[in-house]
Design a protein around this nucleic acid. Structure first.
Lengths: 136, 136
DNA sequence: ATAAAAGTCTATTGATTTGGTAGGGTAATA
DNA sequence: TATTACCCTACCAAATCAATAGACTTTTAT
């Protein structure tokens, strides 16, 4: 399951996607509209900025906005940044790989199956962007 | 990611699958062969017994064994019992469903996408059994 | 009978993660 | 230059995770 933090991140990002091109959006506005705790949201947005997904403007008239076009930001990227591995096992993870202890990956049925699951999932989330998450 | 507990459970279950039809297997044997902490394994096996996956025999010559044929026990069942929901969001979970707060499921892009992910995953784990996890 | 084998049960513990809060600091702009 | 609004550090409670301890019961072989 995605953490609450991830769900909040997606709420904020879809909101920013809808407002894309209309200038900075206040944290407080996102917090109100999307019902996300303000201070928690601050943390999340700051993290997304550090990771290069968002950018911000300070002072009056400031706020947050997407650093790139919504169609350039993949859902998979967001999940990995905020939630962590997408795969069900470390030994089948692309970005968080860890070798299996006491289990030969060459002859492990669980490994093989989880590899299939990973690919089925990636096939979706790697080919979907923030733009796909908003209703046209 | 599957918890350590889940990974241990699968190690034990595949071992019991290999030994299916050969009588009860000692916890201590599974623990040694699969490198799972003994006492932790006790808890896991007991839980699987209470859930109806395993059965056991006490006293000398006792041990654990699969209650049904390996080809009758679905991987999805085990994941749900030990690890919890398979879906990435509560609002797209079949067995752990919770309504989305502040988000209309009818018009939510994230919901729709996660529904696809869930179906892609279930398509695999609902159609695979313990028997499929061991090399023939 | 009875001792040993083997699962059963309760409980506790330490570490980590999760979800969230508090409050002052810093930069930009009207 | 005051205000706005993001930035940063720290903290906290609750939950979950991973594992351990130890006593108890039931069964079976001898």
């Amino acid at each position: 399951m995605l953490s609450k933090k991830s769900q909040y991140a997606f709420k904020a990002l879809t909101y920013l996607t809808e407002k894309y091109g209309q200038g900075p959006v206040l944290i407080s506005e996102i917090s109100k509209k999307k019902k996300v705790p303000l201070k928690f949201l601050e943390n999340i947005l700051l993290e997304l900025k550090k990771e290069g997904i968002l950018d911000s403007k300070k002072g009056k008239g400031g706020g947050y906005f997407l650093k790139q076009k919504p169609e350039k930001i993949k859902v998979a990227t967001i999940i990995r940044l905020i939630n962590g591995p997408i795969a069900m096992l470390p030994c089948v993870s692309l970005y968080f790989y860890e070798r299996c202890k006491n289990c030969d990956e060459k002859h492990c049925g669980l490994h093989d199956m989880m590899l299939e699951v990973r690919d089925a999932t990636l096939n979706i989330v790697e080919n979907r962007t923030l733009k796909d998450l908003i209703t046209p």
